[in-house]
């Protein structure tokens, strides 16, 4: 199939990319841009490991054709830290023991970022509900939820 040129702004950098129509955003990020922090697990939209933020909203890169992301702004895990400074969510995940094997972590972090952008002071129940599309086999989710709440507290304190 014919390749087409699309423009993606990924982590603040504009990329002109040539893709075939059936190529997913996940493949572009991993195979063309070498941003392997975005994972692929189930390929069925069930596990959330491939989550990225598209125009600030959490979406599944495995279920998104790259063509449909043309012109959009994409944040992957590689873009979450700014100027070498970890995002408070990253710090909290590290400090709270929210990371074990780490394969779900990029998706968890980005979904959590979308949550805190939308709702800076969530309850425990709201965190659990927002993360219900992200599967984890290691942690039992306890420390993940702890970490999101800790990050929210930290961010609210910092007035960010």
């Amino acid at each position: 199939m014919k390749k087409e040129i699309i423009n993606l702004t990924v982590n603040g950098t504009l990329h002109e990319i040539s893709v075939e129509p059936q190529v997913t955003l996940n493949e572009v990020l991993r195979e063309q841009l070498d941003l392997t922090g975005t994972k692929l697990s189930c390929g069925a939209g069930e596990c959330g490991a491939c989550t990225v933020l598209i125009d600030g909203k959490p979406e599944l890169s495995c279920c998104t054709l790259a063509m449909t992301a043309n012109g959009k702004d994409i944040l992957t895990i590689e873009g979450l830290a700014r100027d070498g400074e970890l995002h408070p969510l990253q710090k909290a995940f590290v400090e709270c023991g929210a990371i074990q094997c780490g394969f779900c972590t990029p998706g968890m972090l980005l979904t959590s970022k979308a949550l805190l952008d939308e709702n800076p002071d969530p309850t425990r129940e709201e965190v659990k509900s927002y993360l219900s599309g992200n599967l984890c086999r290691c942690t039992g989710y306890v420390k993940i939820v702890d970490a999101v709440l800790a990050a929210a507290t930290e961010m609210n304190k910092g007035g960010k």
């Binding site: 939209g45 959330g48 599944l60 979904t111 979308a114 509900s129």
Partner: peptide, 9 residues
């Protein structure tokens, strides 16, 4: 419907 991503997309 549980998944935020599915509902967003």
């Amino acid at each position: 419907i549980a998944s935020i991503q599915v509902k967003t997309q």
